[in-house]
Design a protein around this nucleic acid. Structure first.
Length: 888
RNA sequence: GGGCGUUUAGCUCAGCUGGGAGAGCGCUACCCUUACAAGGUAGAUGUCGGGGGUUCGAUCCCCUCAACGCCCACCA
């Protein structure tokens, strides 16, 4: 019989991707709709930078979030996945500044603030949505109507509202404080944005004279001699016997000959360096504290661009590196330099600029996070918010248990301008949500707004609130704030646990008293196959869109899901994507097989009494998979969900059930054909259903052939649930034995080089009467599976055929009479080898059974298991002996 | 310096509360068998990083050593 099939031999992802994404949007599938669960499930997408281009990290973010939200949607939750983009203050401003210089040879100062910001907005409108289109290619099912940009009206309001609130509480304050100054950005940055890197430098020992007693010299160790111009003291430990008499005297700083006090301070480590410390309160964090304790003056010797100012005349205008060389030269000339040694030490670098940051004192805005941190810690301790995997809470705690005031002002233009206003007339200073027209104190109109903008993370921290309309009451009602806040699960990478997760917790709880989400799932960081970070400089980046066009979005999604469990690295090899592309194609071809029989299939399953043993088996196995997948998704084990369905499709459904169906479908029993077609269709509906959260496109495509009503999209169906009535351990055990026997026969065939076309006669011996019956009922199938022409099934009391190719399983002996056609020695050796292996295994379990301690201590079920195993191995050994005897 | 983590087949990794070492890819042999060569069948491969301990029993728990990775702190 010739079966016609006009489906293409390989699945075409491109067509399905475009078609179904449009269909889902058209049918508003991604919008929240009440489901049978009567609960909401909300996910907030970490907003990518507007300057960004989709990379593998985004692809993983998108895959895990989309799989989760599709799963929950099918489970009957009212789901909402909120997308958005981040203005990314620093990097966006940098991109536009670069462009401006390239095109017009102008700096932002040439344009002025207003004109420059206009340019940035133009740029944002033109290129800012690139990444959104790329996300759509991956099939993300978020509600685009909720899409928010961090500089939209509502986030603006949120930022102002929060700022004013905390300003009025005194938690936001302005202060002259030592901050990390990034000379490239010419802005302060927060502690979190500083990365420490080991740098090769030098350790200088410098001679300081003591004014009161020219015979005494103090030797001071430093790595930064150029900051001597800002020294305002020399410090020793008050308990240091060597120096404590000098406290109160005066030291003379070389080069500038400044007279500075010698002070005692606990901070000085007697063991470290020379025990004498030059104190530079203007340019060192620790020295700043010493300065405060001892009321020392602060001298600033740096300009905003990191060059030295007039307070360091000998090196004015120089950059730190040149200045250091110059100071070294002068010190040598003055005979003040005693020693210079190589020294590797960590130096802070700006996360964005990668330039050495300079500690510098300047007037900045700070947020006191002490109380908010405590609340955020408690929320995790109490289980109001839980990390998956749990271990990440350590990272979270370590950050929040040592709260430091957060420097929130940045000397940039692109961002939320600080809503603080100053009066030139009476010097009043106040925060306001609305732009004021006159001074709140003296009502003079000569007022101006603070020129600085807020740290980008300030608005990101309010993201769970502002995306749902807060603080605009009308918007909150429209967007369903009360319904969707708190969110359900946040999915993100561990690199932003404190930048973002901790801040959202602090700020969300400050406003609402509730943690902004219940779970945080931390996924891995995608690396190349050797475990290296993907980076431009290494050239080892993999472009997700390339992968999508090469293998299809489904293949890439499956790969990322399969690689994503509780691990912290995901080393991605493009070959794996190819492997899963093959899986997607396998599914497609399995469908091609059943497609011609769909018109015979009914929509409802036949009554149970009409189910074939094989039907009972596949439904039981399918049921097990659904249980595994539900459980895995519920705890974010996307890897387990993926591998469960992968193994089922390959090893159960395709390899056995489809193969076992051919005999029936190619036969003449119309009723049996109808039942089998119905079963296959039913299974396939369940398979694509289970797979849909991971590979939405091919499953929706196949579903469209299985479901007559085209309005019933797969993405809106109920997810398959575990059903105890389908469990069937007996049939599964029988099938496993049947698979053992079939594989055994194939194994023998292969060992004697039988061609697939060679038909054989098989003699089976088993004492398992239940299995013998099963085997008998399935005997015709052995023709299709192993080209068995004829055979017998007997119990082991019967005599075995002589000199046959043979093999023993733990329950059945298999003989293929081929006298004269086989190499007897080879066969005997095969059996002996198997025997040796089996004997070893038997010995292992037997020694356990002979061990008094084991028998008295091991739990009952373990003993039973071992006993059963011993029986199986000994049965097999007896069988192997029988076979050997047949060769005598 | 403080903390976290990793070490299992050639590669990438899984192994949940201790009780037969697994998967994918790769590899070998044979096969274009009417769903699929992006395939099928069969097969090989591991002192579960080293050492010690607890236990009837350890890949799993404890101690210790080693290698690697990450985060935080620190420019004497």
């Amino acid at each position: 019989m010739e079966i016609e099939n006009n489906l293409p031999k390989t699945f075409d992802p491109k067509a399905a991707e475009d078609k179904w994404y449009a269909k889902w949007l058209e049918n508003k599938c991604f919008k929240p709709r009440p489901g049978k669960k009567k609960e909401t499930f909300t996910v907030l997408m970490p907003p990518p930078n507007v300057t960004g281009k989709l990379h593998m990290g985004h692809a993983l973010d998108a895959t895990t979030q989309d799989a989760l939200i599709r799963y929950k949607r099918m489970k009957g939750f009212e789901t909402l996945w909120i997308p958005g983009t981040d203005h990314a203050g620093i990097s966006t401003q940098a991109v536009v500044e670069k462009l401006l210089w390239k095109q017009e040879k102008k700096t932002r100062h040439d344009l002025g603030r207003e004109e420059f910001l206009k340019k940035v907005w133009e740029w944002k409108e033109q290129y800012g949505s690139e990444i959104v289109n790329q996300q759509k290619k991956m099939g993300v099912s978020c509600d685009w109507d909720y899409s928010t940009f961090t500089l939209d009206e509502i986030p603006n309001k949120a930022v102002k509202k929060f700022f004013v609130m905390l300003f009025n509480e005194g938690l936001i304050y302005q202060s002259d404080y030592i901050v990390n100054w990034d000379p490239v950005l010419q802005s302060a940055i927060s502690d979190a944005e500083v990365e420490h890197k080991d740098v090769k430098g030098n350790f200088y020992h410098v001679r300081y004279k003591v004014k009161e007693d020219p015979t005494i010299e103090l030797i001071i160790a430093t790595t930064r001699p150029e900051t001597m111009f800002a020294d305002t003291a020399v410090a020793v430990n008050p308990d240091d016997e060597r120096f404590k008499d000098l406290i109160g005297k005066t030291a003379i700083v070389p080069i500038c000959n400044r007279e500075v006090p010698i002070i005692g301070d606990e901070h000085v480590d007697i063991e470290k360096g020379t025990g004498c410390l030059k104190v530079t309160p203007g340019h060192d964090f620790n020295d700043f504290e010493i300065g405060k304790r001892n009321a020392l003056p602060i001298i600033n010797i740096l300009n905003k661009d990191g060059t030295f100012n007039t307070n360091a005349p000998e090196i004015e205008g120089m950059k730190p590196k040149d200045a250091r060389a110059e100071v070294e030269r002068i010190l040598t000339e003055l005979d003040a330099l005693i020693e210079k040694k190589d020294h590797i030490h960590p130096v802070g670098h700006g996360q964005r600029s990668d330039e050495i940051v300079e500690p510098m004192v300047s007037k900045q805005w700070f947020l006191n996070t002490t109380a908010m941190s405590e609340t955020a810690v408690k929320a995790v301790e109490s289980g109001e918010m839980t990390f998956f995997p749990k271990g990440w809470e350590n990272t979270y705690f370590s950050w929040l248990r040592n709260p430091k005031d957060w420097c929130i002002s940045r000397q940039l233009w692109w961002g939320h301008q600080i809503p603080v206003y100053y009066c030139r007339h009476c010097q009043a200073k106040w925060a306001a949500e609305e732009t004021p027209e006159h001074c709140i104190e003296c009502r003079d109109t000569d007022i101006f707004q603070d020129p600085d903008v807020l740290d980008t993370w300030f608005s990101s921290g309010l993201w769970p609130l502002s995306t749902l309309g807060w603080p605009d009451e009308k918007a909150m009602v429209e967007k369903g704030f009360d319904k969707f806040y708190p969110n359900s699960t946040l999915i993100t990478g561990f690199d932003i646990i404190f930048f973002w997760v901790a801040r959202m917790m602090m700020m969300g709880m400050k406003v609402t008293g509730k943690a902004p989400f219940k779970h945080t799932y931390i996924h891995a960081i995608v690396r190349d196959k050797q475990g290296r970070k993907m980076s431009k400089s290494l050239g080892n980046g993999i472009d997700p869109l390339d992968m999508v066009s090469q293998y299809g979005a489904d293949a890439m999604r499956f790969t990322l899901a399969a690689g994503s469990g509780y691990n912290r690295d995901l080393n991605l090899d493009p070959e794996r994507i190819e492997g899963y592309r093959n899986f997607v194609n396998k599914l497609w071809n399995a469908f091609r097989f059943i497609q011609p029989y769909l018109d015979k299939a009914h929509d409802e399953l036949p009554v149970k009494s009409e189910w074939h043993l094989h039907d009972k088996w596949i439904l039981a196995e399918l049921n097990t998979v659904s249980k595994q997948m539900n459980e895995a998704f519920d705890v974010y084990r996307f890897d387990e969900a993926s591998s469960a369905i992968y193994a089922f499709v390959y090893d159960k459904f395709c390899s056995w059930y489809i193969e076992l169906s051919k005999n029936i479908l190619y036969g003449n029993d119309e009723k049996a054909k109808m039942i089998r077609a119905t079963m296959l269709k039913y299974c396939f509906k369940k398979i694509v259903n289970l797979l849909h959260p991971i590979v939405p496109f091919i499953t929706e495509e196949i579903w469209s052939y299985l479901e007559s009503n085209e309005k019933n999209l797969l993405t809106l169906q109920d997810y398959v649930e575990f059903d105890t009535s389908l469990e069937n351990n007996d049939v599964c055990e029988m099938m496993n034995k049947f698979i053992d026997v079939t594989s055994g026969i194939r194994n023998i065939r292969s060992s004697v080089n039988l061609k697939p076309k060679d038909e054989i006669d098989v003699k089976l011996f088993t004492d398992d009467s239940k299995f013998a019956k099963f085997l008998f009922e399935s005997r015709h199938f052995l023709k299709d599976l192993a080209n068995v022409k004829s055979g017998t099934i007997r119990n082991k009391k019967n005599e075995r055929p002589k000199k046959s190719a043979s093999l023993a399983t733990t329950h059945t002996e298999i003989f293929i009479p081929l006298e004269g056609l086989i190499d007897i020695n080879e066969q005997v050796n095969r059996i002996k080898k198997d025997m040796e292996k089996t004997q070893n295994e038997y010995k292992k379990v037997e020694s356990k059974l002979n061990n008094q301690n084991f028998m008295s201590n091991a739990p009952e079920e373990v003993r039973a298991e071992v006993q059963e195993k011993a029986k199986m191995f000994s049965d097999k050994l007896i069988s192997l002996n029988q076979i050997l005897e047949s060769f005598l």
